[in-house]
Amino acid sequence: MTAIVALATATGTLIGVTLTAYAKYVQARGQADADLMRARAEIMRAEADVTRARAGLPPHDPSVDDDSPASTSPAGQPHR
């Protein structure tokens, strides 16, 4: 009986350690995916800035972000 309890305890401990390690892996993977998404968004913003600079336009100012569909015409020009 003692051997069965010892085996069950060891098995439970091993399962607990495995699940803890897997949870840490999943958390780290999720963080890595979030970091990758942020990096890709930053690259897209930088590419947009390069495109604007090549076109001779001023840099985008996010504090004056009024690009809502209601405020622009189909050609992308602001309504006046």
Rank of each mutant, 00 (worst) to 15 (best):
D67G: 02
G16R: 00
G56N: 01
D35N: 15
L36Y: 07
D65R: 02
E47Q: 15
L19Y: 06
D61A: 02
T20L: 15
L36I: 09
R52V: 03
V5C: 05
I15N: 03
P59G: 01
V17R: 07
T11K: 04
A41N: 05
Y25T: 12
V50D: 06
P74D: 01
Y25F: 15
L36V: 11
P74L: 04
A41H: 06
S63N: 10
P59L: 11
A23C: 02
A34L: 09
V17I: 14
M44L: 13
D61S: 00
M44H: 10
E47I: 06
T51D: 10
M1F: 09
A39V: 06
A28E: 12
D35K: 12
A3E: 11
A23V: 09
R52P: 00
A10L: 13
A55N: 13
A34R: 12
T2K: 11
P74V: 13
A34Q: 11
S68G: 12
A39R: 10
D61Y: 01
R45V: 08
Y25Q: 11
T11P: 00
R29H: 10
A6P: 02
A3C: 04
A8C: 06
T72C: 04
T18P: 00
S68R: 15
T2D: 10
H60D: 09
I43D: 11
A39C: 05
L7N: 09
Y25G: 05
G76N: 03
A53T: 04
S73N: 10
A48Y: 05
A70M: 07
D33K: 12
Y22G: 03
D65K: 03
D49H: 08
E42P: 03
A41E: 14
L14K: 03
S68K: 08
T11L: 14
G56A: 04
G30A: 03
G16P: 00
T18Q: 08
V5A: 15
A32M: 11
V50P: 03
D67S: 09
E42R: 15
A46P: 02
E47F: 05
G56K: 06
G56C: 01
Y25C: 05
V64S: 07
Y22S: 08
M44I: 13
L19N: 05
A3M: 06
V26Y: 05
A8H: 04
A48L: 13
A8P: 01
T2R: 11
H60M: 07
D35H: 03
A39K: 12
D35Q: 15
A41I: 08
V26W: 06
V5Q: 12
M44N: 10
D67P: 01
M44V: 13
I15D: 06
A32L: 14
R54G: 04
K24E: 13
A46T: 07
A32W: 07
P78I: 04
M1G: 13
M37H: 09
Q27R: 15
L14V: 10
L57G: 00
V5R: 14
Q77S: 11
T13M: 09
G12Q: 01
G56Y: 02
R40W: 04
G30S: 05
R40P: 02
A39P: 00
P69E: 02
D65C: 05
A3Q: 08
G12K: 01
G76K: 00
V17D: 07
P78G: 01
L19W: 10
